[in-house]
Design a protein around this nucleic acid. Structure first.
Ligand code: FES
Ligand code: FES
Lengths: 149, 149
DNA sequence: CACAAAAAAGACAAAACGATCTTTTTTATT
DNA sequence: AATAAAAAAGATCGTTTTGTCTTTTTTGTG
């Protein structure tokens, strides 16, 4: 569904949403370690997010990445648009150029409701709202330190 | 979600399910034209499907691809397993190594139910059942000839 | 048998994606 | 001013995916 890049980006944003603010900035190195993602790759993604106003950053010693008030009002959907673009969600599951109720493919009726619902949730829920949920539900953005067998 | 290859394969199988049988075989050329897919690429995929018993074929003049009784009892899921493998459905939406209710990621609760539902439908519905539906509902596996603006 | 039609097989090319590395710019601290 | 820490920028590399091409094998037909 999403590219690796996009998954890293979303997790990084959530990490920043939880652990950073205007006065607590975090460097790529730390983020990459915590999320167990390739560091230079993540750096590039963070740049892209920063230039699209989804993440804030300051250079120099003590600098790093963080989310400000504005950034926290963005949504997962904004991140997806920024990194992957929307076409994956527009396209038909079987590769027809357009997914539409007008000329549905044979799996349209099973796939389409799902797509719409997820899309709405991703679009409507702000990062800060999502972080609230994370704190309540105890969900997880990294498996670092987990002992999976 | 699915690779291009897999989408082509599914559509090709559905095409064959509708238009072929033991006595009416169809060549790659025709199939590729009707589905508007790259011909040599599709040929390779059909070979793969054939060697996995999802499609039947005969060589020589008058030969071609077709679905026999057995082939029509397979499911979309079988095609996906054959071409893409299952890992895309096992993996977490945000890229955590395992998607599980045990250590859910922040979007697990919105994504997971749908994944399960779709997976079941793909697994349980045979190709022949699906073709029945296609005939009733008038869904479409190619946009060839459609005038989309 | 000779021929032609078709799939089977596999080598090869191009593009997208994933990831790394090096250099430059900015800036806080000494 | 010098230094060092950090992001910004961009060049580069490897792999996977996608797609093409050529050759071989099989087989029905005249
Ligand atoms: S038309 Fe294929 S998923 Fe909607
Ligand atoms: S754990 Fe992420 S989708 Fe299930």
């Amino acid at each position: 569904m999403l590219s690796n890049a996009c998954k890293y980006a979303i997790r990084a944003i959530l990490y920043l949403a939880i652990h950073s603010d205007e006065t607590t900035k975090i460097g790529v190195k730390k983020i990459a370690e915590e999320l167990e993602t390739p560091q230079p790759f993540l750096a590039k993604l963070l740049r892209q997010l920063t230039s699209n106003k989804l993440v804030s950053s300051t250079k120099g010693p003590g600098g790093g990445f963080f989310l400000d008030k504005n950034n926290k009002e963005k949504s997962i959907w904004d991140v997806i648009c920024c990194i992957d673009g929307t076409h994956k969600f527009d396209k038909c599951f079987l590769g027809l150029s357009k997914c539409s109720d007008k000329n549905p493919c044979p799996v349209h009726s099973t796939v389409s409701p799902f797509k719409k619902k997820i899309l709405n949730e991703f679009r409507d829920k702000t990062i800060s709202k999502l972080v609230e949920e994370i704190e309540v539900e105890g969900t997880v953005i990294s498996l670092k330190g987990f002992d999976l067998k």
